[in-house]
Amino acid sequence: MTSGNSQPSREDVLYAFAVELTPGRDTLERYLRDYPEYTDGLIDLSYELSREVREDEMPLSVEQQAMIDSAWQQHVEAAPKEVIDPFANLTVTAQRDLARQLSVPRQVITAFREHRVEPNSVPLPFLKRMAVVLNITAEGLRDFLGQSLDAELMRSYKADSRPESPTKVDFEQLLIDANVPPDKRKLLMEGEF
């Protein structure tokens, strides 16, 4: 916390002035008297505070939308990188629902759960749809899929001989292996299903 006894910074004084409940001449006069070193900023801010703020009624422009997306992207990159497992608490019924909502066989969901899918091979629209249903960000789901599968798979092997190093499978190959018909596969790959 900030000490109340030390000399307040310009930042603190101007912010304090900005959030005063009763702006106006008396308040400005008090601040000018107490903090004459910040006269310029206080008068400029007083003028700015008198201006009405009207929310822009126009729909967002492409440029504005790009700014918002860019800010979000930077935020995600700066966020803690702990990878969460969105399938951890998913019951069998919920997995079945997920498969139905995404129009894919259950084994496709299982491959995602075991992060056996190459994340970069998953079409973005499909990834986003799955993320929405799982209540996770698309970036979070991609991070989860990007986890190495060695450790987990090694633990699950019970054979005496060491298995070959497992590799991730492309999303399209996964659909082929799951006997998804070509026309439906095409739609899923194009993100239109």
Binding site: D69, W72, A79, I84, N135, I136, T137, G140
Partner: peptide, 16 residues
């Protein structure tokens, strides 16, 4: 961890 709800709220705020 950010989730979909957070992403939407965050974007609304930047829009404001």
């Amino acid at each position: 961890m950010p989730d979909i709800c957070f992403e939407k709220l965050y974007k609304f705020l930047i829009e404001r």
